[in-house]
Each structure stands twice: as structure tokens, then as C-alpha cells.
Simulated scan of single mutants.
Amino acid sequence: MLEVLNLFKPEQPVIDIEVICSQLGYTSASAYRYVKELSNAGLLVRLPRGYALGPRIIELDRHMTQFDPLLAASRDIVGDLIAQTHLELLISELYDSTVINILQRSGADEQALNFGRGRPMDLFRSATAKVILAYLLPRQLKRLFDNAAPGDLERIGLTWKDFSKAMLRIRKDGYCISEGELDPGKSGIAAPIFDEKGRILGSITLAGNSERFNAFNREFLSTLMIDAARKITSRIAG
């Protein structure tokens, strides 16, 4: 039933029963039943042209902004990092095979990143996503590698051996740096955040104009990010 919510995209802000049936393969009876249940829960709202996302999602978003454990564990750290670097900061979280930015705070750059809060990110592009990718289980990595498009693998490794080495290098370093992979002229550095069982949960990223970013000593930035990620991880575990 919740797959219905995955149908909403910038180019498809409103859906109807026909769209649900054609894109998800549901029968009309199932589609009507699901939209009724989702509407009763406030997750959908009925419009003249079909169904749009409902007000309950806004309520949940507000709750997450105020009380999400990952955000709560990182608030003061976020402020300190921005004050020290004036770069843009992202907190991102993994679900299924998708990375979502759940927090974006601006630094000194006038032009913000295109991939801000709420935007799903390609697992094979950007330091934000690749530092998460590197800490997935081997079987997860192999599945993602086998299903990846050639264009994705060109940025990491076209063979499983090269891909595995790239992931191992990120784990060994404890951070990942990318340049221009999402926004031309923008660079970023990210470190992994783990849950209380040591599983990869998300990442913290500093990013900004490449000229400003490259003015920093890489060792300084990497130490800053690794320490910040470890503090957040420790707070979540505690």
C-alpha cells in the first residue's frame, strides 16, 4: 500500500486510480482500497484531478525536524562546523537503497547546493552518498554493483575488483571527498554516522564552492568531519 506514495514525483504531483493501476500493477479494487486507507490516515488528500500528498506528511515532517534522534544528536555540532568553515552542511540518512538529505544548513556561499533537504541522492555520486555506500554489507554492495548503470560505475570502478578497492579505501580513510559530482564548481567531504549496533545510518557532509573548499587543509577537514561523525554516533548509541 505504501508503494503508492512512491509515485509522487516533481513531474507527477497528482495521481489517480489509473496511474496507480498502470504503474504499480494493482487492480482497481485494490487501488481504491489503498487510497481510501491512505486518505483516512491523512497521507493523501482528494483533489479534482486525483490525489496529492496529505497534511499528515507535513505534521510528520515537523515532528522529525524537532525530535528525530539523528538531528537531535547533531544540532550543536552542525552549528560549530558551520561557524568554523562557513561551508554548507548536510545531514543525510539511508533508507532501503536511497540516501535522503534530512538537514541542510547554509554557510557563506550565496548559491546553495541543488541537492538540499528532502532530495534523494544517487548512491554512486557525491561524497555524501558514497561514504554511506562504502559501509554497506558486502552482499548489498555486490547487488548494487551488479544492477548499476555503466555511467555510475565509471566514477568508482568498472570491475568488481576496482569497485571493492574504492569502497575499502573510503572505509580505511574514514571519509570521502568529491568534486563537481552533483553541482559543477562544488566540492564536499563526508564522514559516516552509525547506529547503536554499528550499522551505517547516514552521513554528515561539508560542501561548498570548490575554491573556498580547496582553501582548507584536507587533513584539517577530514579530522573535523571524522570527529563530528564519531560524536554523533556516540550520542545515538548512548
Results as ranks from 00 to 15, higher is better:
residue 2 L to P: 13
residue 3 E to F: 12
residue 10 P to M: 00
residue 13 P to L: 08
residue 14 V to W: 02
residue 20 I to C: 04
residue 21 C to Y: 00
residue 24 L to D: 01
residue 25 G to V: 07
residue 29 A to E: 06
residue 32 Y to H: 08
residue 33 R to C: 04
residue 34 Y to H: 10
residue 36 K to E: 07
residue 39 S to F: 09
residue 41 A to D: 09
residue 41 A to L: 15
residue 42 G to M: 03
residue 44 L to T: 11
residue 48 P to D: 06
residue 48 P to Y: 08
residue 52 A to W: 05
residue 59 E to F: 15
residue 60 L to P: 04
residue 63 H to C: 14
residue 65 T to I: 13
residue 68 D to Y: 06
residue 69 P to K: 10
residue 70 L to K: 10
residue 73 A to T: 12
residue 76 D to I: 04
residue 77 I to M: 07
residue 79 G to Q: 15
residue 81 L to N: 07
residue 82 I to R: 03
residue 83 A to G: 10
residue 84 Q to W: 13
residue 84 Q to D: 13
residue 92 S to I: 06
residue 92 S to M: 01
residue 93 E to S: 12
residue 97 S to R: 13
residue 98 T to V: 02
residue 98 T to D: 01
residue 100 I to M: 14
residue 102 I to D: 08
residue 104 Q to W: 14
residue 105 R to E: 12
residue 105 R to W: 10
residue 107 G to M: 03
residue 107 G to D: 11
residue 110 E to T: 13
residue 115 F to A: 08
residue 117 R to A: 03
residue 119 R to F: 14
residue 124 F to W: 07
residue 125 R to V: 06
residue 125 R to T: 00
residue 125 R to G: 05
residue 125 R to K: 11
residue 126 S to M: 09
residue 126 S to E: 02
residue 128 T to P: 09
residue 128 T to C: 09
residue 132 I to W: 08
residue 133 L to F: 09
residue 134 A to T: 05
residue 135 Y to H: 10
residue 136 L to N: 09
residue 138 P to I: 10
residue 142 K to F: 15
residue 144 L to T: 03
residue 144 L to C: 11
residue 148 A to R: 01
residue 148 A to S: 07
residue 149 A to K: 13
residue 155 R to A: 12
residue 155 R to K: 11
residue 158 L to C: 09
residue 160 W to R: 13
residue 160 W to Q: 10
residue 161 K to I: 15
residue 162 D to Q: 00
residue 166 A to C: 04
residue 167 M to K: 12
residue 169 R to Y: 14
residue 170 I to G: 02
residue 171 R to I: 13
residue 172 K to I: 14
residue 173 D to C: 15
residue 174 G to W: 01
residue 174 G to M: 04
residue 176 C to L: 15
residue 181 E to F: 04
residue 182 L to T: 02
residue 190 A to D: 01
residue 194 F to V: 05
residue 195 D to L: 07
residue 196 E to D: 08
residue 196 E to T: 10
residue 201 L to E: 14
residue 203 S to G: 12
residue 204 I to S: 12
residue 206 L to P: 03
residue 211 E to F: 14
residue 211 E to L: 14
residue 214 N to W: 02
residue 217 N to C: 09
residue 218 R to I: 04
residue 224 L to C: 03
residue 225 M to D: 01
residue 235 R to A: 12
residue 237 A to Y: 00
